Computed example of a mutant assay.
Amino acid sequence: MAIETTRWDVTEYLDDEEAIFAYVEAAFEDGDPALIKHALGNVARARGMTAIAKEAGVTREALYKALSEKGDPKLSTLLGVAKALGVRLTVSPVGPG
């Protein structure tokens, strides 16, 4: 008898501000641009891609393209998405030195 599985979708768990912030923060702490882009895309899907695109000042199609696996979003797009998601990108020192 084969085991039945269902696809796990992170967007089902991004249902409040605290979860979204923790998810995006973890992606930025990792520092991998592909992971950050993927995380922002997941949060945008969880919140509604059309609404996020509108708040970010881009078309829905442009947002999908920018946050896709092969996408390379401009800084202005990332800042717009971050603002639409209710987060702010900041800088801090990496460590001593």
Rank of each mutant, 00 (worst) to 15 (best):
M1K: 10
M1C: 10
A2M: 11
T5D: 13
T5S: 13
T5L: 11
R7D: 05
R7A: 07
R7I: 09
R7F: 06
W8H: 08
D9R: 10
T11M: 08
E12F: 14
Y13T: 15
Y13S: 13
L14W: 05
D15N: 08
D15F: 03
E17F: 01
I20V: 05
I20P: 01
Y23T: 10
Y23G: 02
Y23Q: 02
V24H: 03
V24W: 00
E25I: 02
E25F: 12
A27S: 04
F28V: 12
F28N: 09
D30C: 13
D30G: 13
D30K: 15
D30I: 15
G31C: 01
P33F: 14
P33K: 14
L35Q: 11
I36V: 12
K37I: 01
H38M: 14
H38A: 15
A39N: 02
L40N: 03
L40K: 00
G41W: 02
G41S: 07
N42K: 06
N42R: 00
N42G: 04
V43M: 12
V43Q: 06
V43R: 04
V43D: 06
V43A: 07
R45H: 11
A46N: 11
A46E: 06
G48S: 08
G48D: 02
M49P: 05
M49H: 10
T50Y: 15
T50S: 13
I52W: 09
K54F: 14
E55T: 05
E55H: 07
A56S: 11
A56M: 07
A56V: 07
A56P: 09
G57D: 11
V58F: 00
V58K: 01
V58I: 00
T59N: 01
R60F: 09
R60W: 11
R60L: 15
R60P: 13
A62L: 04
Y64L: 15
A66I: 04
L67M: 11
S68Y: 06
E69L: 15
E69S: 14
E69R: 14
K70W: 07
G71V: 09
G71R: 04
D72C: 05
D72F: 02
D72S: 13
P73M: 03
P73Y: 03
P73T: 01
K74C: 03
K74I: 00
L75W: 07
S76V: 09
S76G: 13
L79F: 12
L79A: 10
G80N: 11
G80Y: 01
V81F: 03
A82Y: 12
K83R: 14
K83C: 10
A84G: 04
A84E: 03
G86M: 00
V87W: 05
L89N: 08
L89P: 13
L89H: 10
T90C: 08
T90M: 10
V91Y: 07
S92F: 13
S92T: 11
V94W: 14
V94C: 14
G95Y: 02
G95L: 02
P96F: 08
P96T: 07
P96A: 13
P96L: 08
P96I: 10
